[in-house]
Structure formats: C-alpha cells, structure tokens
Amino acid sequence: MEHFALWLAAFLTLGIVSFLYKDNPWYKLCEAIFVGLSAGYWFVVLFWDNIYGKFWVGVFPLEEFDEAGREITAEPDYWLFVGAALGILMLMRLVPNIGWISRWPLAFIVGSTAGLYLINYFSSNMMRQVQGTIVPLFGAGYDASAYAIVGNIVVAVGTFAGLVYFFFSKEHRGVFGGTAKVGVFFLMLTFGASFGYTVMSRMSLLIGRMDFLLGDWLGMIK
C-alpha cells in the first residue's frame, strides 16, 4: 500500500510537471484530480471547522471535566446564531424569488471587514510606519554607526518619495514628479531584492520535489 501511494504521488508530480513541456492529457488528468480532490477536501475541512467546530460546539458545548472530576463545560454562546442566520440568508440565493436577501449577509461581511480593517491598517500601515520613519539622520548626540546613519537616510528619503508617488490628486510634474520618480526607483529596488529572495525560496520547493522523486521514489539519493 505504501509503495502504491509512493508511485501514485510520483505519477501525479510528474503529471503536473509535464505542463512545462505543454498541455497534455496526463496534465489534464492530474489537474482534474487536484482541483476535484482539493475542492472536496476543503468542503470537509470547512464543515468540521466552522459548522461543527465553531457553531455546533459553541452552542452545544461538549461536556468536559477537570482532573478532580469537576465539570468545566463551557457556557453556550448563543451569539453564534447570528452568524448561522446570516449563513442561512446566504442560501436564499437558491430560491429565485427571494434571492435578493442573500445580499444582506454580503453587505454585512464587506461593511464589517472595511470597518475592522480601517483601524488595523491605520495602526500598522500608517502610525507604526510613520513612527519607524521618523528617525534622527545624524548628529545632535545621536550615537550610531555610519552604516546605521545611511540606513536611516534611506528609510526617510525612500518613504517620503514613495508616498509622493502614491499621490493621485496631483500631476507628477516638476519637483513633485522628480520626487515621485525617486519613489518609483526605491520601489523597483525593493521589488528586485524581493524577487531574488522569493526565487531562492521557490528553489527550495523545487529541491523538495526533486528530493522526493530521486530519493523517496527512485532511491537514487541515500
């Protein structure tokens, strides 16, 4: 059985890799298995995590006892019925005449997401970013290495110029346009570094698959 699973995994891996050559029936088969299996897998995971794990267990908590045998069962959380009701409203799409009701839970999700993230992003992407950017560049009792000073200048100038690039209500001309160009320059430098870093991490994924094929499957790597 173990050998069968190993050969099946190798067959599917090579099938997906064969896409590098061109689209072919082998890839189509593997793709269909991958998409179908993963869709089914996620359905089961979401059912047990959410409908059972969060809603059912939340409303009807499982009996639990501590080491001394005393009951420590959690209190039922009836607020979960609000989520369940929104979920049922979503299913109204299946009834054409009242399908419009399914827009309510959607509006709730989109609205609450926007509201919640407003504070989160304002704190992390604005406040903390500005705090990290406001740094002494040099002098005035600031005791730092030349390396740190250059780093501070790059952070301050890069953030300033980058922000100027993301100004949408002013034409990028003259000094303003020049600063925006400096901002793009910083962005592209960052992207280049990020590109190289991510490619290297992808190489480790490739090495992992090659290790499976040549080691676990073919036994060529001991």
């Binding site: 997906i16 793709e31 991958f34 998409v35 179908g36 993963s38 869709a39 897998y41 996620w42 979401l46």
Partner: peptide, 12 residues
C-alpha cells in the same frame, strides 16, 4: 468556483 486550495486553483 474552482477550489479553495491555492495551488489547485492555480493548476485549474
């Protein structure tokens, strides 16, 4: 809909 799986989605 295709699948919730990141790479299954990409393959599809």
């Amino acid at each position: 809909y295709l699948t919730d799986d990141q790479f299954g989605y990409a393959a599809g």
